[in-house]
Write a protein that binds this DNA or RNA. Structure first.
Lengths: 124, 124, 124, 124
DNA sequence: GTGGTCTAGACCACC
DNA sequence: GTGGTCTAGACCACA
Protein backbone atom coordinates (compact mmCIF):
# COMPACT_ATOMS: atom_id res chain seq x y z
CA UNK A 1 0.00 0.00 0.00
CA UNK A 2 1.16 3.46 -0.80
CA UNK A 3 -0.05 6.40 1.19
CA UNK A 4 -0.56 9.80 -0.22
CA UNK A 5 -2.57 12.04 2.03
CA UNK A 6 -4.50 15.02 0.87
CA UNK A 7 -4.75 18.13 2.95
CA UNK A 8 -7.95 19.18 4.67
CA UNK A 9 -9.26 15.80 5.73
CA UNK A 10 -8.11 14.05 8.94
CA UNK A 11 -5.37 11.55 8.28
CA UNK A 12 -6.94 8.80 10.37
CA UNK A 13 -10.01 8.93 8.16
CA UNK A 14 -7.86 8.59 5.09
CA UNK A 15 -6.08 5.68 6.72
CA UNK A 16 -9.41 4.00 7.47
CA UNK A 17 -10.46 4.47 3.90
CA UNK A 18 -7.26 2.92 2.65
CA UNK A 19 -7.74 -0.13 4.84
CA UNK A 20 -11.36 -0.48 3.86
CA UNK A 21 -10.41 -0.55 0.21
CA UNK A 22 -7.48 -2.91 0.79
CA UNK A 23 -9.72 -5.31 2.66
CA UNK A 24 -12.51 -5.07 0.11
CA UNK A 25 -9.98 -5.63 -2.64
CA UNK A 26 -8.83 -8.77 -0.85
CA UNK A 27 -5.34 -7.40 -0.38
CA UNK A 28 -5.83 -8.25 3.28
CA UNK A 29 -7.86 -11.49 3.12
CA UNK A 30 -10.27 -12.51 5.90
CA UNK A 31 -8.45 -13.79 8.97
CA UNK A 32 -5.15 -12.28 7.86
CA UNK A 33 -2.96 -10.92 10.59
CA UNK A 34 -2.15 -7.25 10.19
CA UNK A 35 1.39 -5.92 10.77
CA UNK A 36 2.09 -4.28 14.12
CA UNK A 37 0.72 -0.79 14.61
CA UNK A 38 4.22 0.64 14.86
CA UNK A 39 5.25 -0.95 11.57
CA UNK A 40 2.14 0.22 9.82
CA UNK A 41 2.75 3.69 11.20
CA UNK A 42 6.30 3.99 9.93
CA UNK A 43 5.28 2.52 6.58
CA UNK A 44 2.58 5.16 6.23
CA UNK A 45 4.83 7.84 7.66
CA UNK A 46 2.35 8.83 10.32
CA UNK A 47 2.35 9.00 14.07
CA UNK A 48 1.65 5.60 15.75
CA UNK A 49 -1.19 7.25 17.66
CA UNK A 50 -2.87 8.22 14.40
CA UNK A 51 -2.55 4.69 13.06
CA UNK A 52 -3.81 3.31 16.36
CA UNK A 53 -6.87 5.50 16.15
CA UNK A 54 -7.64 4.41 12.61
CA UNK A 55 -7.43 0.75 13.53
CA UNK A 56 -9.48 1.24 16.67
CA UNK A 57 -12.26 2.81 14.68
CA UNK A 58 -12.11 0.03 12.13
CA UNK A 59 -12.46 -2.37 15.03
CA UNK A 60 -15.52 -0.49 16.18
CA UNK A 61 -16.92 -1.00 12.70
CA UNK A 62 -16.23 -4.72 13.01
CA UNK A 63 -13.85 -4.83 10.10
CA UNK A 64 -10.91 -5.98 12.18
CA UNK A 65 -10.68 -7.57 15.60
CA UNK A 66 -7.78 -7.80 18.00
CA UNK A 67 -6.69 -10.74 20.12
CA UNK A 68 -5.18 -9.17 23.20
CA UNK A 69 -1.72 -10.68 22.88
CA UNK A 70 -1.33 -11.92 19.35
CA UNK A 71 -2.24 -8.94 17.23
CA UNK A 72 -4.93 -7.64 14.95
CA UNK A 73 -6.79 -9.62 12.29
CA UNK A 74 -9.15 -8.96 9.43
CA UNK A 75 -12.67 -10.09 10.24
CA UNK A 76 -13.82 -13.42 8.91
CA UNK A 77 -17.46 -12.44 9.07
CA UNK A 78 -18.65 -12.76 5.44
CA UNK A 79 -21.61 -10.60 6.25
CA UNK A 80 -19.48 -7.70 7.37
CA UNK A 81 -17.26 -7.99 4.31
CA UNK A 82 -20.27 -8.06 2.06
CA UNK A 83 -21.64 -4.98 3.72
CA UNK A 84 -18.29 -3.27 3.32
CA UNK A 85 -18.25 -3.92 -0.39
CA UNK A 86 -21.79 -2.70 -0.71
CA UNK A 87 -21.01 0.49 1.17
CA UNK A 88 -17.96 1.22 -0.92
CA UNK A 89 -19.70 0.64 -4.22
CA UNK A 90 -22.75 2.57 -3.08
CA UNK A 91 -20.52 5.50 -2.15
CA UNK A 92 -19.06 5.30 -5.63
CA UNK A 93 -22.50 5.33 -7.20
CA UNK A 94 -23.61 8.23 -5.03
CA UNK A 95 -20.55 10.23 -6.05
CA UNK A 96 -21.27 9.59 -9.71
CA UNK A 97 -24.92 10.44 -9.30
CA UNK A 98 -24.21 13.66 -7.48
CA UNK A 99 -21.69 14.73 -10.08
CA UNK A 100 -24.15 14.18 -12.89
CA UNK A 101 -27.02 15.97 -11.18
CA UNK A 102 -24.62 18.85 -10.51
CA UNK A 103 -24.11 18.74 -14.25
CA UNK A 104 -27.77 19.39 -14.74
CA UNK A 105 -28.94 15.91 -15.63
CA UNK A 106 -32.25 14.64 -14.33
CA UNK A 107 -32.60 11.17 -12.84
CA UNK A 108 -34.19 9.88 -16.02
CA UNK A 109 -31.43 11.28 -18.20
CA UNK A 110 -28.84 9.68 -15.97
CA UNK A 111 -30.48 6.28 -16.27
CA UNK A 112 -30.71 6.59 -20.02
CA UNK A 113 -27.11 7.66 -20.34
CA UNK A 114 -26.06 4.85 -18.04
CA UNK A 115 -27.93 2.25 -20.07
CA UNK A 116 -26.43 3.60 -23.24
CA UNK A 117 -22.96 3.49 -21.74
CA UNK A 118 -23.37 -0.07 -20.52
CA UNK A 119 -24.53 -1.13 -23.97
CA UNK A 120 -21.62 0.65 -25.63
CA UNK A 121 -19.25 -1.01 -23.23
CA UNK A 122 -20.75 -4.41 -23.95
CA UNK A 123 -20.42 -3.66 -27.64
CA UNK A 124 -16.73 -2.90 -27.40
CA UNK B 1 -18.55 30.43 -11.22
CA UNK B 2 -16.01 29.98 -8.52
CA UNK B 3 -12.53 28.92 -9.32
CA UNK B 4 -10.04 27.19 -7.12
CA UNK B 5 -7.30 25.41 -8.95
CA UNK B 6 -5.53 22.29 -7.88
CA UNK B 7 -1.80 22.03 -8.28
CA UNK B 8 -0.20 19.75 -10.84
CA UNK B 9 -2.65 20.18 -13.66
CA UNK B 10 -2.36 23.14 -16.04
CA UNK B 11 -4.67 25.97 -15.15
CA UNK B 12 -5.91 26.42 -18.70
CA UNK B 13 -7.09 22.81 -18.70
CA UNK B 14 -8.96 23.32 -15.46
CA UNK B 15 -10.48 26.45 -16.91
CA UNK B 16 -11.59 24.54 -19.97
CA UNK B 17 -13.13 21.88 -17.79
CA UNK B 18 -14.97 24.44 -15.75
CA UNK B 19 -16.44 26.03 -18.83
CA UNK B 20 -17.37 22.67 -20.31
CA UNK B 21 -19.35 21.83 -17.20
CA UNK B 22 -20.90 25.26 -16.95
CA UNK B 23 -22.03 25.02 -20.56
CA UNK B 24 -23.30 21.46 -20.15
CA UNK B 25 -25.13 22.54 -17.03
CA UNK B 26 -26.80 25.29 -19.02
CA UNK B 27 -25.28 27.98 -16.87
CA UNK B 28 -24.13 29.51 -20.13
CA UNK B 29 -27.04 28.79 -22.48
CA UNK B 30 -26.48 28.34 -26.23
CA UNK B 31 -25.83 31.64 -27.97
CA UNK B 32 -25.10 33.36 -24.69
CA UNK B 33 -22.41 36.03 -24.78
CA UNK B 34 -19.50 35.33 -22.48
CA UNK B 35 -17.87 38.11 -20.47
CA UNK B 36 -14.76 39.66 -21.98
CA UNK B 37 -11.57 37.62 -21.72
CA UNK B 38 -10.02 40.17 -19.42
CA UNK B 39 -13.03 40.18 -17.14
CA UNK B 40 -13.12 36.40 -16.96
CA UNK B 41 -9.41 36.46 -16.21
CA UNK B 42 -9.69 38.79 -13.26
CA UNK B 43 -12.70 36.87 -12.00
CA UNK B 44 -10.73 33.64 -12.09
CA UNK B 45 -7.61 35.32 -10.76
CA UNK B 46 -5.46 34.25 -13.68
CA UNK B 47 -3.51 36.03 -16.34
CA UNK B 48 -5.55 37.16 -19.36
CA UNK B 49 -3.28 35.08 -21.58
CA UNK B 50 -4.12 31.92 -19.68
CA UNK B 51 -7.83 32.60 -19.95
CA UNK B 52 -7.40 33.44 -23.61
CA UNK B 53 -5.69 30.14 -24.21
CA UNK B 54 -8.44 28.18 -22.47
CA UNK B 55 -11.12 29.89 -24.53
CA UNK B 56 -9.16 29.52 -27.76
CA UNK B 57 -8.91 25.78 -27.20
CA UNK B 58 -12.60 25.59 -26.40
CA UNK B 59 -13.18 27.36 -29.68
CA UNK B 60 -11.13 24.70 -31.43
CA UNK B 61 -13.46 22.16 -29.87
CA UNK B 62 -16.39 24.04 -31.28
CA UNK B 63 -17.93 24.80 -27.90
CA UNK B 64 -17.68 28.54 -28.28
CA UNK B 65 -17.11 30.88 -31.18
CA UNK B 66 -15.80 34.40 -31.23
CA UNK B 67 -16.76 37.39 -33.29
CA UNK B 68 -13.73 39.59 -33.55
CA UNK B 69 -15.13 42.79 -32.19
CA UNK B 70 -18.30 41.84 -30.39
CA UNK B 71 -17.27 39.09 -28.06
CA UNK B 72 -17.40 35.37 -27.49
CA UNK B 73 -20.51 33.22 -27.57
CA UNK B 74 -21.55 29.74 -26.60
CA UNK B 75 -22.19 27.59 -29.65
CA UNK B 76 -25.77 27.09 -30.75
CA UNK B 77 -25.02 23.76 -32.40
CA UNK B 78 -27.26 21.31 -30.54
CA UNK B 79 -25.19 18.46 -31.84
CA UNK B 80 -22.01 19.73 -30.24
CA UNK B 81 -23.78 20.34 -26.96
CA UNK B 82 -25.26 16.86 -27.02
CA UNK B 83 -21.84 15.37 -27.63
CA UNK B 84 -20.43 17.43 -24.79
CA UNK B 85 -23.00 16.08 -22.36
CA UNK B 86 -22.38 12.54 -23.52
CA UNK B 87 -18.63 12.90 -23.11
CA UNK B 88 -18.94 14.35 -19.63
CA UNK B 89 -21.30 11.68 -18.41
CA UNK B 90 -19.27 8.93 -20.03
CA UNK B 91 -16.17 10.21 -18.29
CA UNK B 92 -18.11 10.02 -15.04
CA UNK B 93 -19.13 6.44 -15.72
CA UNK B 94 -15.62 5.45 -16.69
CA UNK B 95 -14.25 6.93 -13.47
CA UNK B 96 -16.78 4.98 -11.39
CA UNK B 97 -16.08 1.79 -13.28
CA UNK B 98 -12.33 2.11 -12.91
CA UNK B 99 -12.62 2.81 -9.22
CA UNK B 100 -14.74 -0.27 -8.64
CA UNK B 101 -12.54 -2.58 -10.67
CA UNK B 102 -9.57 -1.22 -8.71
CA UNK B 103 -11.62 -2.28 -5.69
CA UNK B 104 -11.58 -5.82 -6.96
CA UNK B 105 -15.07 -6.04 -8.40
CA UNK B 106 -15.67 -7.88 -11.64
CA UNK B 107 -17.80 -6.40 -14.39
CA UNK B 108 -20.70 -8.65 -13.45
CA UNK B 109 -20.52 -7.69 -9.79
CA UNK B 110 -20.49 -4.05 -10.76
CA UNK B 111 -23.61 -4.46 -12.87
CA UNK B 112 -25.40 -6.32 -10.12
CA UNK B 113 -24.44 -3.76 -7.51
CA UNK B 114 -25.50 -0.99 -9.84
CA UNK B 115 -28.89 -2.56 -10.47
CA UNK B 116 -29.37 -3.08 -6.76
CA UNK B 117 -28.44 0.51 -6.06
CA UNK B 118 -30.81 1.86 -8.68
CA UNK B 119 -33.63 -0.23 -7.26
CA UNK B 120 -32.86 0.95 -3.72
CA UNK B 121 -32.85 4.50 -4.96
CA UNK B 122 -36.19 4.00 -6.67
CA UNK B 123 -37.48 2.54 -3.44
CA UNK B 124 -36.47 5.55 -1.41
CA UNK C 1 -9.65 49.27 -60.15
CA UNK C 2 -8.08 49.55 -56.78
CA UNK C 3 -4.40 50.13 -56.39
CA UNK C 4 -2.35 48.78 -53.62
CA UNK C 5 1.34 49.02 -54.26
CA UNK C 6 3.88 46.85 -52.60
CA UNK C 7 7.28 48.18 -51.65
CA UNK C 8 10.42 47.15 -53.47
CA UNK C 9 9.14 46.98 -57.01
CA UNK C 10 8.83 50.06 -59.24
CA UNK C 11 5.34 51.47 -59.22
CA UNK C 12 5.10 51.87 -62.99
CA UNK C 13 5.67 48.12 -63.34
CA UNK C 14 2.89 47.45 -60.89
CA UNK C 15 0.70 49.82 -62.82
CA UNK C 16 1.49 48.02 -66.07
CA UNK C 17 0.64 44.75 -64.46
CA UNK C 18 -2.64 46.07 -63.23
CA UNK C 19 -3.59 47.29 -66.69
CA UNK C 20 -2.51 44.04 -68.31
CA UNK C 21 -4.77 42.12 -66.01
CA UNK C 22 -7.65 44.56 -66.39
CA UNK C 23 -7.38 44.30 -70.16
CA UNK C 24 -7.06 40.53 -70.14
CA UNK C 25 -10.03 40.35 -67.82
CA UNK C 26 -12.00 42.41 -70.31
CA UNK C 27 -12.53 45.19 -67.82
CA UNK C 28 -11.15 47.46 -70.52
CA UNK C 29 -12.58 45.89 -73.69
CA UNK C 30 -10.78 46.19 -77.05
CA UNK C 31 -11.13 49.62 -78.56
CA UNK C 32 -12.23 51.14 -75.27
CA UNK C 33 -11.04 54.65 -74.60
CA UNK C 34 -8.96 54.97 -71.46
CA UNK C 35 -9.48 57.85 -69.03
CA UNK C 36 -7.05 60.74 -69.26
CA UNK C 37 -3.61 60.16 -67.81
CA UNK C 38 -4.17 62.80 -65.17
CA UNK C 39 -7.39 61.19 -64.04
CA UNK C 40 -5.85 57.77 -63.95
CA UNK C 41 -2.97 59.18 -61.94
CA UNK C 42 -5.13 60.76 -59.27
CA UNK C 43 -7.29 57.67 -59.10
CA UNK C 44 -4.20 55.56 -58.50
CA UNK C 45 -2.68 58.15 -56.21
CA UNK C 46 0.54 58.34 -58.19
CA UNK C 47 2.44 61.04 -59.99
CA UNK C 48 1.12 61.66 -63.52
CA UNK C 49 4.62 61.06 -64.83
CA UNK C 50 4.62 57.58 -63.37
CA UNK C 51 1.26 56.80 -64.93
CA UNK C 52 2.43 58.28 -68.21
CA UNK C 53 5.46 56.01 -68.19
CA UNK C 54 3.36 52.93 -67.50
CA UNK C 55 1.04 53.71 -70.38
CA UNK C 56 3.90 54.51 -72.71
CA UNK C 57 5.48 51.15 -72.02
CA UNK C 58 2.16 49.42 -72.54
CA UNK C 59 1.97 51.23 -75.86
CA UNK C 60 5.42 49.91 -76.77
CA UNK C 61 4.07 46.45 -76.03
CA UNK C 62 1.19 47.13 -78.38
CA UNK C 63 -1.46 46.73 -75.76
CA UNK C 64 -2.76 50.26 -76.12
CA UNK C 65 -2.41 52.85 -78.82
CA UNK C 66 -2.87 56.59 -78.72
CA UNK C 67 -4.51 58.84 -81.27
CA UNK C 68 -2.69 62.10 -80.99
CA UNK C 69 -5.64 64.27 -80.14
CA UNK C 70 -8.41 62.02 -78.96
CA UNK C 71 -6.79 59.91 -76.28
CA UNK C 72 -5.60 56.40 -75.58
CA UNK C 73 -7.39 53.20 -76.52
CA UNK C 74 -7.10 49.52 -75.84
CA UNK C 75 -5.79 47.64 -78.84
CA UNK C 76 -8.27 45.83 -81.04
CA UNK C 77 -5.68 43.40 -82.34
CA UNK C 78 -7.04 40.00 -81.33
CA UNK C 79 -3.62 38.53 -81.75
CA UNK C 80 -2.03 40.83 -79.23
CA UNK C 81 -4.80 40.17 -76.74
CA UNK C 82 -4.45 36.48 -77.22
CA UNK C 83 -0.72 36.72 -76.62
CA UNK C 84 -1.35 38.78 -73.51
CA UNK C 85 -3.62 36.16 -72.07
CA UNK C 86 -1.15 33.45 -72.89
CA UNK C 87 1.67 35.34 -71.23
CA UNK C 88 -0.31 35.97 -68.10
CA UNK C 89 -1.47 32.42 -67.74
CA UNK C 90 1.98 31.10 -68.55
CA UNK C 91 3.45 33.30 -65.83
CA UNK C 92 0.91 31.83 -63.48
CA UNK C 93 1.85 28.32 -64.45
CA UNK C 94 5.54 29.06 -64.11
CA UNK C 95 4.99 30.47 -60.63
CA UNK C 96 3.09 27.36 -59.59
CA UNK C 97 5.69 25.09 -61.10
CA UNK C 98 8.56 26.86 -59.41
CA UNK C 99 6.83 26.77 -56.05
CA UNK C 100 6.24 23.05 -56.31
CA UNK C 101 9.78 22.23 -57.39
CA UNK C 102 11.02 24.37 -54.51
CA UNK C 103 8.83 22.08 -52.43
CA UNK C 104 10.86 19.14 -53.62
CA UNK C 105 8.48 17.72 -56.20
CA UNK C 106 9.81 16.33 -59.44
CA UNK C 107 8.22 17.18 -62.76
CA UNK C 108 6.52 13.80 -62.87
CA UNK C 109 5.10 14.18 -59.39
CA UNK C 110 3.78 17.59 -60.29
CA UNK C 111 1.99 16.24 -63.34
CA UNK C 112 0.48 13.40 -61.36
CA UNK C 113 -0.66 15.74 -58.59
CA UNK C 114 -2.07 18.11 -61.16
CA UNK C 115 -4.03 15.37 -62.91
CA UNK C 116 -5.34 14.17 -59.57
CA UNK C 117 -6.38 17.66 -58.64
CA UNK C 118 -8.16 18.27 -61.92
CA UNK C 119 -10.03 15.00 -61.51
CA UNK C 120 -10.99 15.88 -57.94
CA UNK C 121 -12.18 19.25 -59.09
CA UNK C 122 -14.26 17.69 -61.83
CA UNK C 123 -15.68 15.32 -59.27
CA UNK C 124 -16.81 18.10 -56.99
CA UNK D 1 16.04 27.98 -42.98
CA UNK D 2 15.87 31.70 -43.37
CA UNK D 3 13.00 33.62 -41.96
CA UNK D 4 11.66 36.95 -43.03
CA UNK D 5 8.14 37.62 -41.97
CA UNK D 6 5.57 39.64 -43.78
CA UNK D 7 3.37 42.02 -41.87
CA UNK D 8 -0.32 41.38 -41.38
CA UNK D 9 -0.22 37.65 -40.90
CA UNK D 10 0.55 36.16 -37.47
CA UNK D 11 4.16 35.12 -37.10
CA UNK D 12 3.30 31.75 -35.62
CA UNK D 13 1.29 30.93 -38.73
CA UNK D 14 4.20 31.87 -40.96
CA UNK D 15 6.46 29.75 -38.80
CA UNK D 16 4.09 26.82 -39.15
CA UNK D 17 4.03 27.29 -42.89
CA UNK D 18 7.79 27.38 -43.07
CA UNK D 19 8.09 24.15 -41.14
CA UNK D 20 5.40 22.49 -43.22
CA UNK D 21 7.31 23.28 -46.38
CA UNK D 22 10.65 22.31 -44.89
CA UNK D 23 9.23 18.99 -43.81
CA UNK D 24 7.49 18.41 -47.13
CA UNK D 25 10.72 19.30 -48.90
CA UNK D 26 12.50 16.68 -46.84
CA UNK D 27 14.77 19.27 -45.27
CA UNK D 28 13.68 17.79 -41.95
CA UNK D 29 13.39 14.06 -42.74
CA UNK D 30 10.92 11.83 -40.87
CA UNK D 31 12.10 11.04 -37.37
CA UNK D 32 14.62 13.86 -37.42
CA UNK D 33 15.17 15.67 -34.15
CA UNK D 34 14.40 19.36 -34.35
CA UNK D 35 16.60 21.91 -32.59
CA UNK D 36 15.42 23.05 -29.16
CA UNK D 37 12.53 25.52 -29.11
CA UNK D 38 14.74 28.22 -27.70
CA UNK D 39 17.38 27.69 -30.37
CA UNK D 40 14.81 27.77 -33.15
CA UNK D 41 13.42 30.93 -31.61
CA UNK D 42 16.71 32.79 -31.62
CA UNK D 43 17.44 31.53 -35.13
CA UNK D 44 14.12 32.90 -36.34
CA UNK D 45 14.47 36.03 -34.25
CA UNK D 46 11.19 35.52 -32.45
CA UNK D 47 10.18 35.01 -28.86
CA UNK D 48 10.44 31.44 -27.58
CA UNK D 49 6.75 31.52 -26.78
CA UNK D 50 5.86 32.29 -30.36
CA UNK D 51 8.01 29.45 -31.63
CA UNK D 52 6.56 27.18 -28.96
CA UNK D 53 3.08 28.00 -30.12
CA UNK D 54 3.89 27.28 -33.74
CA UNK D 55 5.39 23.91 -32.86
CA UNK D 56 2.56 23.04 -30.51
CA UNK D 57 0.05 23.64 -33.27
CA UNK D 58 2.10 21.56 -35.68
CA UNK D 59 2.00 18.84 -33.08
CA UNK D 60 -1.78 19.10 -33.02
CA UNK D 61 -1.67 18.56 -36.76
CA UNK D 62 0.42 15.46 -36.22
CA UNK D 63 3.38 16.74 -38.18
CA UNK D 64 5.75 16.62 -35.24
CA UNK D 65 5.69 14.97 -31.85
CA UNK D 66 7.55 15.85 -28.70
CA UNK D 67 9.12 13.69 -26.07
CA UNK D 68 9.05 15.66 -22.86
CA UNK D 69 12.72 15.66 -22.02
CA UNK D 70 14.49 14.63 -25.17
CA UNK D 71 13.19 17.01 -27.76
CA UNK D 72 10.89 17.33 -30.71
CA UNK D 73 10.84 15.10 -33.75
CA UNK D 74 9.33 15.05 -37.22
CA UNK D 75 6.58 12.47 -37.50
CA UNK D 76 7.43 9.15 -39.12
CA UNK D 77 3.87 8.56 -40.22
CA UNK D 78 4.15 8.27 -44.01
CA UNK D 79 0.44 8.85 -44.28
CA UNK D 80 0.59 12.22 -42.60
CA UNK D 81 3.54 13.28 -44.72
CA UNK D 82 1.74 12.22 -47.88
CA UNK D 83 -1.31 14.21 -46.85
CA UNK D 84 0.89 17.20 -46.13
CA UNK D 85 2.38 17.10 -49.61
CA UNK D 86 -1.03 16.76 -51.17
CA UNK D 87 -2.39 19.69 -49.21
CA UNK D 88 0.51 21.92 -50.12
CA UNK D 89 0.35 21.14 -53.82
CA UNK D 90 -3.43 21.44 -53.85
CA UNK D 91 -3.17 24.85 -52.24
CA UNK D 92 -0.76 25.79 -55.01
CA UNK D 93 -3.17 24.63 -57.67
CA UNK D 94 -6.07 26.41 -56.05
CA UNK D 95 -4.11 29.64 -55.94
CA UNK D 96 -3.27 29.35 -59.62
CA UNK D 97 -6.83 28.51 -60.53
CA UNK D 98 -8.27 31.40 -58.58
CA UNK D 99 -5.82 33.84 -60.10
CA UNK D 100 -6.71 32.77 -63.60
CA UNK D 101 -10.45 32.87 -63.06
CA UNK D 102 -9.98 36.34 -61.57
CA UNK D 103 -8.28 37.06 -64.89
CA UNK D 104 -11.47 36.18 -66.68
CA UNK D 105 -10.59 32.71 -67.89
CA UNK D 106 -13.20 29.99 -67.83
CA UNK D 107 -12.46 26.53 -66.54
CA UNK D 108 -12.17 25.18 -70.07
CA UNK D 109 -9.80 27.91 -71.14
CA UNK D 110 -7.64 27.21 -68.13
CA UNK D 111 -7.43 23.53 -68.96
CA UNK D 112 -6.56 24.26 -72.57
CA UNK D 113 -3.91 26.77 -71.57
CA UNK D 114 -2.53 24.34 -69.04
CA UNK D 115 -2.31 21.53 -71.56
CA UNK D 116 -0.62 23.83 -74.04
CA UNK D 117 1.84 24.97 -71.42
CA UNK D 118 2.69 21.44 -70.36
CA UNK D 119 3.28 20.47 -73.99
CA UNK D 120 5.48 23.51 -74.57
CA UNK D 121 7.42 22.67 -71.46
CA UNK D 122 7.86 19.08 -72.64
CA UNK D 123 9.00 20.45 -75.99
CA UNK D 124 11.68 22.60 -74.40
C1' DG E 1 19.20 20.61 -21.01
C1' DT E 2 14.34 19.52 -22.66
C1' DG E 3 9.37 20.83 -23.36
C1' DG E 4 5.55 23.11 -21.00
C1' DT E 5 3.17 26.58 -18.42
C1' DC E 6 2.32 31.06 -16.40
C1' DT E 7 2.60 36.03 -15.60
C1' DA E 8 2.99 40.88 -16.83
C1' DG E 9 2.42 44.14 -19.97
C1' DA E 10 2.28 45.82 -24.58
C1' DC E 11 0.41 46.56 -29.33
C1' DC E 12 -2.80 45.89 -33.23
C1' DA E 13 -7.23 45.79 -36.04
C1' DC E 14 -11.82 46.37 -35.90
C1' DC E 15 -16.29 49.02 -35.30
C1' DG F 1 -14.35 48.17 -25.98
C1' DT F 2 -13.50 43.48 -28.30
C1' DG F 3 -10.45 39.40 -29.50
C1' DG F 4 -5.78 38.33 -30.98
C1' DT F 5 -0.84 38.40 -31.07
C1' DC F 6 3.80 39.17 -29.39
C1' DT F 7 7.60 39.89 -26.15
C1' DA F 8 10.24 39.29 -21.94
C1' DG F 9 11.30 36.64 -18.38
C1' DA F 10 10.24 33.31 -14.94
C1' DC F 11 9.28 28.64 -12.95
C1' DC F 12 8.42 23.61 -13.04
C1' DA F 13 9.08 18.52 -13.93
C1' DC F 14 11.75 15.31 -15.89
C1' DA F 15 15.95 12.44 -16.54
Amino acid sequence: MEWNFEAGVPIYLQLMDGFRQAIARGEYPPGQKLPAVRDLAVEAGVNPNTMQRALAELEREGLVYSMRTSGRFVTEDANVLETLKKELSDACFEAMYEKLTALGMTEIEIREALDRWLLDRAGI
